[in-house]
């Protein structure tokens, strides 16, 4: 068993994303275009799972998220999907929390709550 295989695969997927290789959707978040792989989005987000799992998701290659998250909250989540690391600061946590709620990423929502709670403790 190659115990670091899953993180190596994820690292390669992230490299593909950064180079725009096989990215099959452009997300318009706060007007900012972000390229990604539908397969990674669907694997990480209940919201994207419900959108892309059906046939309706097949032809979608540009997706705007009206009334959705702002880029400042969404970009850290996209990085998290491809790296397993969620970068939070007291300034960004509320926007990341809102975006994670919108994307139905419950485990991340709970982590954001824990972070915000901890940042209020003396």
């Amino acid at each position: 068993e190659f115990t670091r295989h899953s993180s190596d695969v994820l690292g390669n997927l992230n490299e593909l994303r950064l180079r725009g290789i096989l990215t099959d959707v452009t997300l318009l978040v706060g007007g900012q275009p972000l390229r990604a792989h539908k397969a990674v989005l669907i694997a990480c987000s209940g919201f994207f799972y419900s959108i892309f799992r059906g046939r309706a998701g097949v032809g979608v290659d540009v997706l705007s998220l009206p009334g959705g998250p702002e880029a400042g909250g969404f970009a850290p989540l996209l990085d998290f999907m491809y790296t397993s690391r969620l970068r939070l600061s007291p300034a960004t946590a509320p926007a990341v929390l809102a975006a994670a709620t919108y994307l139905q990423m419950d485990h991340v929502v709970q982590a954001c709550h824990r972070f915000i709670q901890a940042s209020y403790e003396p």
């Binding site: 694997a43 990480c44 987000s45 799972y49 999907m81 990423m105 419950d106 485990h107 991340v108």
Partner: peptide, 22 residues
């Protein structure tokens, strides 16, 4: 100055589980 960067390790589930095909 740059704020403190602390890393919290989360061992639990990170993302939803796609239901297995019945």
């Amino acid at each position: 100055h740059e704020g403190l960067v602390a890393t919290v390790k989360e061992a639990g589930r990170s993302i939803h589980e796609i239901p297995r095909e019945e």
